[in-house]
């Protein structure tokens, strides 16, 4: 898969397992923080009736951070949870996607994360599918 959209790769990084992301990025480039990892809350909104007027459902924890690599590129991350390393890795990865290393990291990190997330989701979908009810009619009332 080619990674052209920042929106796409940031989503993959945010949803990645922090330990898995760290394992895929063993060597971090030199960087400084424009915004040190900061834990906060995001208010999750939903809609009445699924599609109607918005209401506040409750908050979720989130960690954000912004880094600058020594050679210039800036990276941002907003990730669910309270893991400072997760946000740092994601922000560095975001910055690196603006460098010539983007193609290599796309296949070496993002593809792997994306594939694993897809597989996990597929497994859940298939477990759900196994619990789908097949109705069959025994006797119709009007025939009795």
């Amino acid at each position: 898969m080619t990674w052209n959209s920042r929106k796409d790769w940031m989503a993959v990084l945010a949803k990645a397992d922090p330990a898995r992301l760290a394992a895929l990025m063993p060597d971090l480039p030199a960087h400084s923080f424009l915004r040190s990892p900061e834990v906060g809350a995001v208010m999750v909104q939903a809609r009445a009736g699924g599609t109607g007027a918005p209401f506040n459902l409750g908050e979720m924890t989130v960690t954000r951070c912004s880094v600058q690599l020594t050679d210039g590129p800036v990276g941002h991350a907003w990730v669910q949870g309270r893991d400072a390393r997760h946000s740092t890795h994601a922000a560095i990865m975001d910055a690196l996607m603006h460098t010539p290393q983007a193609a290599a990291l796309g296949s070496g990190v993002l593809d792997v994360l994306h594939r694993e997330a897809q597989a996990a989701r597929q497994a859940r979908t298939e477990k759900a599918a196994a619990t789908k009810v097949d109705f069959f009619t025994l006797v119709r009332g009007e025939d009795a």
Partner: peptide
């Protein structure tokens, strides 16, 4: 630009 991203608190708490 990068200038916009600097100038905040270094140790916010």
């Amino acid at each position: 630009n990068t200038h916009t991203l600097s100038g905040g608190f270094a140790d916010a708490p």
